[in-house]
Write a protein that binds this DNA or RNA. Structure first.
Lengths: 143, 143
DNA sequence: CGGTTTAGGTCAATCATGTTGACACAGTAG
DNA sequence: CTACTGTGTCAACATGATTGACCTAAACCG
């Protein structure tokens, strides 16, 4: 069993993770809302920007959603000209996804808001704290 | 404009936050699923446990949802005997909410999984990293 | 060659979680 | 008495997800 004081510390940590995540997503959410898009669209734009030429399957694995859940928003982004799909050169079944210039613009805008938010927190906490934060986050993702 | 290298670092940070949060919630989610409950129920149990005698309004403000969204799951928890409501002593309109013994048991089980997860990450990253992590999280929540 | 697997797409039914609006009732505060 | 507050509930709707079933086309394999 974990010590009671320690439990209180861990609860504080749980709460900060909850509130931080909530505060972190709601700015881009509000930007997207104005265009009739949702958080999924941001995630799709984000990961395509991060991994240009990712396949639909690759995106599915990253996002951990069903292909039906991905299909509609992705098609929307294609229709809006924010994402482009090119037929795979090796395997003609696969679609390699990329951001168009306009897609890059929107993605930069959305992610930029989050980057500013994070940067402000890092600035206020200092570089040592930032490194510690990164170390803990890596352990959290891996564990 | 932020430096490109810095942008890449910030993107890494964004991703770790996304994946960490996702990994963090899915264990309790799976436990709840077996009882036919959802993440909302966990949040309700959590915050009532944290602030015994909180009112319905207090819970609404904490969770930042509409009262209609809160009502159904809260009623469910009351009916299941996991939460008890007592009439306020000063203001008889308010309901002060508490966990029953069984509610405490379930809450401890759910949050315990998250505490173990966090503790493991802190153990692996070390105490200095933990402090840095906390500092950044506080700044993130406040910003 | 032919059979199986893989990448992708789509339709349908369903569920979970949230919203807003409207209304009710009891209790408090002035 | 009136106004506001805390709580509850009904209805309509939106969003984002699920599973299951079925389809095409391409690749892979024996």
């Amino acid at each position: 069993m974990i010590d009671l004081n320690r439990q209180a510390q861990l609860r504080t940590a749980i709460e900060s993770l909850y509130f931080a995540y909530r505060g972190f997503t709601d700015r881009p959410d509000r930007m997207l809302e104005r265009r009739g898009l949702g958080r999924v669209h941001h995630r799709i734009l984000y990961f395509i920007g991060r991994r240009p030429d990712v396949s639909v399957k690759g995106l599915l694995d990253l996002l951990a959603v069903s292909k039906q859940a991905l299909n509609a928003p992705l098609r929307q982004l294609l229709e809006m000209g924010l994402v482009a799909a090119v037929e795979g050169t090796e395997d003609r079944r696969v679609k390699n996804l990329r951001l168009t210039a306009e897609g890059q613009r929107l993605e930069a805008e959305l992610t930029g808001a989050q980057m500013k938010h994070l940067q402000a927190a890092f600035d206020s906490a200092g570089p040592a704290a930032e490194q510690g934060w990164r170390d803990v986050m890596v352990a959290l993702v891996e564990g």
